[in-house]
Simulated assay, not measured.
Amino acid sequence: MKPNHCIIFDPIPYHGGSKVATQLAIQQVNDGTVFHVLSASPMSWNQGQSNKVSITNLALPQCLAIQTQRLGYWAKQAYLMFCLTMFTAWVVITKFKKPNTLVMASGPGVDFAGYAVSKLMQIPLLQLIHGPVGKSSAAKWCLNQGHPTFYLQSAEPSLLLCMDSESLPANFKTFTNGLDENDYPTPHSFSIDGITSFYWAASLLKWKGLDILKNAIELTEPSSQLTTNICYIKPQNSNAEQSLVDATIPNTCWYHEPNNLDEIRAKSDVYISTSTNEPFGLSTLEALSAGLIVVIPRDNAFWDKKLQHNVNCIKYDANDAQSLSQAMAHIAKNPEQYQGIAKQGQKIATLYLASNTYRDIAWAIEAKCPQEPTLGSGCEIKSGEQQ
């Protein structure tokens, strides 16, 4: 029996948590599906994860990559549509079979070209939404095409606003992120050397809040026994405002997209999140599972709602470097009293396993089969149908 073929379209030219989540989701799909990834950031995809995934580079000129509005946006979408059409035709010719699904994971406005190719070539589409959706006519058109759409709960207000609706159609379903049981974060063991090691991991995009951490470190007393490991992603070909790397800040170690991220995390004692209104926070979940003391802002976002201060995490006032500095200083002075909080956080993490959190997405991808589905098979929702 020939395998099913699925194309994943990834037009964002830098690494991010949404790509990690998408990779974990497709790992839950059965071995009868082969994935062909067309990516503007091929290094973001773990090519060794499975022999059922192949990655092809999407050459995206910088002059187009930075276009997000007006004629520039449509020029970029026309170019992306051409590239995806050619890539899809190549898959059809070489595999002697039409792809069963096009998976979009960057957001409806960014993925417009994928929707156009889906309609042009009559291939079912599945959309993953990992964060808030910007309001635009292009995004609204995409969301109204009736394709199966999976979204993080935090994205719902922006989806309703974009669609000018009070409720979402039946083809929209929520999901949450999870961790791969076969590649679980290495557990942390607290040391007794008197130095507390803090850990931060995110991109340099301004909203990730690195500047808050830098200010907090500078406000911390020089006598405080702490060091900070800062692991960062520097987005390329992006007009979005970014924070600056500052290696002159004392007692900090800077790592640009380190290959040994798991090792750095496991050797750290405390994880700090400075993102405000983070749609999910995969780094926070990884830190919880590794048994670090987790420090998050009070911002009414996902983890602020799920975790309790002084029970399974420590909270500080959002966007307040002074509040964060005080939290860091208190932990550094007596880290032993916070180790129980880390253990409670570790228990919370066990509720978020990829085999459970991405199950519905995997089933939806597997349901895109050439045969007509039977009632109750899980294949009833077909891409392109209005609900």
Rank of each mutant, 00 (worst) to 15 (best):
Q67T: 00
M121I: 04
N100F: 10
N100D: 04
T85Y: 15
L80Y: 01
A105E: 14
V103T: 10
G107V: 01
K98L: 11
M86H: 12
L120C: 12
I55E: 07
V92G: 07
I66M: 06
I66S: 13
T56D: 15
L58D: 01
T88A: 09
N57T: 06
M104D: 08
V91C: 13
R70I: 01
A113P: 10
T68C: 04
M86V: 13
L71P: 11
F112M: 06
N57P: 02
Y115K: 03
L102W: 00
L120N: 05
L60E: 09
N100A: 14
Q62N: 14
D111A: 02
G72S: 08
N100I: 04
A75T: 13
V117M: 06
L102F: 00
L58R: 03
S54K: 12
G114Q: 00
R70C: 03
N57Q: 07
Q49T: 07
Y73G: 02
T68S: 12
F96K: 04
Q62M: 08
L84A: 06
W74F: 15
S118C: 03
Q62W: 01
L71G: 14
I93R: 13
G114H: 03
I93S: 07
N51Y: 07
V91W: 09
L84Q: 10
T85L: 12
S50N: 05
V92A: 15
K97Q: 14
N51K: 12
T94G: 05
M104S: 12
T101A: 15
P108C: 00
T68G: 03
T85S: 08
I93N: 13
T85K: 12
V91G: 10
M104Q: 08
Y79Q: 05
K97V: 05
L60W: 09
K52T: 13
C83I: 04
D111I: 00
T101H: 08
C63W: 11
D111C: 00
V53S: 02
A65Y: 06
F87R: 02
T85M: 08
W74Y: 13
S106R: 10
Y73S: 03
P99N: 05
A78C: 09
A78F: 10
A75Y: 00
F112L: 13
Y73F: 12
T85G: 14
A89H: 12
P99T: 12
K98N: 10
A116F: 03
S106C: 15
D111S: 05
M104E: 09
Y79R: 07
L64A: 03
P61K: 06
L60P: 02
P108Q: 02
K52I: 14
Q77M: 01
D111Q: 02
Y115C: 05
R70W: 09
A113Y: 07
C83R: 13
M104F: 12
A89V: 15
L58M: 02
T68P: 00
V91A: 07
L102D: 14
N51Q: 09
